[in-house]
């Protein structure tokens, strides 16, 4: 198998943890570790200087959270998150490649993760997210990590979809609304028409505009979304449904 060379940086604040990974990586000649960082600050510098195409990224670092590195990067490397203990699963959706390893790292899981990254560059999650999952969103110029429950709405833009997060950020992904609909949890997200999927807990206000359309105010959206009468009625009905029991 002619695997492409991977230029990797290991980011972990504990030297023995970096060594544990280095030891396991010695069995993979196609992975060249070009740098090691023990903090977010060092990692950012190394990524700018060395332009790696693979990161082994510890989530809990002394000076912050590994996810905080991603929005600051000007490159889109593959990422293998390494974590000692995390209550939340990490899901990839429209990301070149991500995977994650639990500590202590294990030979088989590492081989599997590298395999996925080299041979399935479009590997994405299949199944349905849960509210507590973290999802990594990557577009051509941006990387975001958010809890699924922080996605406030998704608006169709031709073949793309614009994802709005509750904090106000947006990211444009090469994903269809149908694909989104199939992975988002049904008890939280609702699609009133072809061009909008909305997080029901993020709807602030639905106001009748005139006889034919309604304005929906959603957290994280700078302007209200206009819905036709039928879609508005569907959304209102969905909002009235008690989500208890």
């Amino acid at each position: 198998m002619n695997a492409p060379e991977l230029r990797a940086i290991i980011i972990d604040d504990e030297a023995p943890a970096r060594e544990a990974l280095l030891d396991l990586l010695s069995a993979h000649p196609n992975v060249r570790v070009i740098g090691e960082a023990n903090s977010l600050a060092n990692a950012l510098e190394l990524c700018r200087d060395l332009r790696p195409n693979l990161l082994f990224l510890d989530i809990q670092l002394g000076d912050g959270c590994g996810f905080d590195l991603l929005p600051k990067l000007n490159i889109s490397p593959s990422i293998i998150f390494v974590t000692a203990y995390d209550e939340f699963a990490i899901r990839a959706f429209e990301v070149n490649a991500i995977d994650y390893l639990l500590k202590p790292p294990n030979r088989t899981r590492l081989a599997h993760a590298l395999e996925r990254i080299t041979h399935l560059p479009k590997a994405t999650f299949t199944g349905v997210f849960t509210k507590q999952d973290r999802v990594v969103l990557q577009s051509d110029d941006k990387f975001l990590v958010a809890f699924v429950s922080e996605i406030s709405g998704i608006v169709a833009q031709e073949n793309y979809s614009l994802v709005h997060l509750s904090a106000g950020e947006t990211v444009l992904l090469r994903r269809s609304m149908a694909e989104w609909e199939s992975v988002l949890p049904r008890d939280l997200f609702f699609r009133p028409n072809r061009s909008l999927i909305v997080n029901l807990e993020m709807v602030r206000k639905v106001s009748m505009n005139n006889r034919d359309d309604m304005d929906v105010e959603i957290s994280g959206f700078s302007t209200p979304v206009r819905l036709g009468r039928k879609a508005g009625v569907l959304l209102r009905r969905e909002l009235k449904q008690p989500h208890l029991l």
């Binding site: 504990e14 544990a20 000692a84 203990y85 500590k103």
Partner: peptide, 18 residues
Amino acid sequence: NPHFLFNALTMIQAGIAR
């Protein structure tokens, strides 16, 4: 403290290998 536990095990794993 699961963070402590699993990180300590990782350190021990590296220590054994070396």
